[in-house]
């Protein structure tokens, strides 16, 4: 890492940790998710003793993340909902605030590369979010240990860690978008609105649009239906929301063996057992790659825009 990058990185991390905004966002996420965990633990505890399976066999710890009592959304649902807000919230004024404070010109008149400024912001936000989610994950596992009285299996730990990492990548996508807007728009309010619009679009309207232009009618030959589903899936997967949902579903629910339609050939050979971790990972590799790619593309756009921008004044 270049020296100037690490200096800026340290400054950004300190900024986040001291900012009200970050602490409020974190508190919000910690409280909601812990509440959902608590209800999940209660629900599982009331169900498990009746099950004839021994504890541990059914991915108990994973269920902590996905179970809901029907009133409060599950941990995964909460995180999926709040992660974009966290990404947007942390970075929507990343560059515009430096510009408006008049510190951007001063920074850029030091012997540092221009890209170091945005790279440092990006890495710092990601590092802070990553550490927070890992911590949250371990709190959850600790809580599970306390509630169930048995430790998670190695595979469960792996799945949970990966789920948290994928979540960090998902936050990074939104954060990259927010940085792009913070470069493009000088007013922080414009940037927030733009970010929220994109988020609303992908979480509410995009699925409707996909249903409209690529409906699954279920009519015609098997091939027709498969083609319909394929098209629907392809379009859905252009949205980071879909990619994240698919990835987390596979990671946290090992009994989900495939995404999309199951053909007869696939079903015949399949044994109804949970998918091993490496198989799950293989299945969602494209989703993870897609999220990373989105982040990289958005960052690339920010980079190009920032390099060409007039940095003058407030």
């Amino acid at each position: 890492m270049r020296r100037s990058l690490s200096v800026l990185f340290r400054k950004e991390v300190a900024d986040h940790l001291h900012s009200w905004r970050f602490n409020i966002l974190i508190a919000l996420i910690a409280l909601t998710t812990l509440a959902s965990l608590y209800t999940a633990a209660q629900t599982i505890r009331s169900v498990v003793p009746q099950a004839d399976q021994p504890l541990g066999d059914i991915g108990l710890f994973l269920k902590l993340f996905t179970t809901t009592d029907g009133k409060l959304p599950s941990f995964v649902a909460f995180v999926g909902f709040l992660a974009p807000l966290l990404g947007l919230g942390m970075a929507f004024d990343a560059i515009s605030s430096e510009r408006n404070k008049g510190t951007l010109v001063r920074l850029l008149s030091q012997p540092i590369y221009r890209d170091d400024v945005i790279l440092a912001k990006w890495f710092a936000a990601l590092a802070v979010v990553g550490v927070f989610f890992l911590a949250l994950g371990f709190i959850v596992m600790g809580l599970g240990l306390f509630v169930f009285g048995i430790p998670p299996t190695a595979e469960e730990v792996l799945r949970i860690v990966f789920f948290l990492l994928v979540t960090a990548v998902y936050v990074a996508v939104w954060q990259s978008l927010a940085i792009l807007f913070s470069i493009r728009f000088r007013q922080a309010a414009t940037s927030v609105l733009a970010g929220l619009s994109v988020w609303l679009f992908f979480s509410l309207f995009y699925p409707m649009i996909v249903n409209l232009i690529a409906p699954i009618t279920g009519r015609g030959t098997v091939d027709d239906v498969l083609r319909e589903i394929g098209r629907h899936q392809f379009l859905s997967r252009l949205s980071p929301v879909t990619l994240y949902e698919e990835a987390t579903t596979i990671l946290l629910s090992p009994d989900v063996r495939a995404l999309g339609p199951f053909t007869l050939e696939q079903a015949i050979g399949a044994i109804p057992t949970p998918l091993p971790f490496d198989q799950s990972l293989l299945l969602i590799w494209p989703q993870i790659a897609g999220l990373v790619a989105m982040s990289v593309v958005l960052f690339g756009l920010s980079f190009v825009l920032f390099m060409r921008q007039d940095i003058r004044g407030r």
Binding site: K101, T103, S109, I112
Partner: peptide, 13 residues
């Protein structure tokens, strides 16, 4: 930039 110190107009901290 290594050898020039620059004070912008309306400097920010």
């Amino acid at each position: 930039k290594q050898v020039v110190g620059y004070l912008p107009d309306d400097v920010g901290f």
